[in-house]
Simulated scan of single mutants.
Amino acid sequence: MTVTVPARAASPLLDLVRPARPTHVVDVGANPIDGDPPYRDMLAAGLCRVTGFEPQPEALDELRRRKGPHETYLPDALGDGGTHTLYVAASSGMTGIFRPDANRLGLFNGFSEWGRIREEAEISTKRLDDVEAVGAFDLLKIDIQGAELMVFQGGRRKLAAAVAVHTEVSFVPLYEDQPVFGDVDQELRGQGFIPHAFAAVKRWPIAPVVFGGDFRQARHQLLEADVVYVRDFGRPESMTDEQLGQLALVAHHVYDSTDLAYHCLRQLSLRNRAVHDAPNRYLALLAGSG
């Protein structure tokens, strides 16, 4: 069937790929402490729906207060399905189930205070595969202070249908026993994803050096990054028509990855699963908006 969206939100790309359903985004750790989510424009246009998870009560209340008609927010903490200690930090963005590492925090300006533990509480986690409220989804956006790998490992069945993962990765672990970039990369590659883009890179000055009077201004030291993984488009035979269509939509509307969107359209055309001459129509669309 063809998805119908409000006229103001109509996407010419929808007419080319003809997806079976609206794009579904799952946002784990939806507290918007770093600004608007990457899918903001797609959501505002009514082109996707969002299921978000946020176990911190105040952040959850704010998300629910501000939410639109295509957003649902749940209080569950996702992880490995076990019970863990929640370390509530002075900065809500550093609250999680891995204890902040005082020695590591001391290496970087500001982090000793932000990662100071205010209290500890017991929290039960759910595996993504076990959450009945989440069916098929296309984009997983996740930022949960080191526990991302747990979610990937506990969500392999549902992630098999997804086409993109937007995850925070750490190059220098700030929490005890925290998985780092290599661990996450190996898991996601094993699930059929490959790196596509660095959506953001965080560098930080090594304490106590301060550059230009700004303790946040860095030179080279990598700390964290937001990395976008996509379903391996070099193996299109392993992707369904719906996955190719959803990847085209996410690539175009969320990441401005027009080359990837074109590739997906071309694969759909080769299968006779897109409208006639879809790749060239897409190029014309881009030329007209340029």
Rank of each mutant, 00 (worst) to 15 (best):
G290T: 02
L222C: 10
K158A: 03
L86Y: 04
R66S: 08
G182F: 14
D277C: 07
V165A: 12
G115C: 03
H84T: 04
T4S: 07
G192C: 12
F108D: 00
R216F: 10
L247I: 03
Q217C: 09
V163Y: 01
W114C: 08
Y87W: 10
V88H: 03
P279W: 06
V134L: 14
H166D: 15
D232M: 02
R127N: 15
A225S: 06
A9S: 15
P236I: 02
D214I: 11
P100S: 00
G245P: 05
G190S: 12
K202H: 12
D214P: 03
E113P: 02
P205C: 09
I97T: 15
F111Y: 14
Y175Q: 15
H276I: 11
S289A: 02
A160P: 09
A136F: 06
P55S: 00
G29E: 15
A160H: 06
G106T: 01
T240L: 05
M94L: 14
A199M: 14
R235K: 15
L47S: 01
G68F: 00
D183G: 10
V250N: 02
F152R: 09
E187M: 10
P19F: 03
I33G: 10
V254Y: 04
T23I: 15
T167F: 12
L223F: 07
R231C: 09
S289K: 00
F181N: 10
Y262H: 02
A164L: 08
D101W: 05
L105K: 07
P57Q: 08
C48Y: 01
G115V: 06
V3N: 02
Q186A: 15
D76V: 05
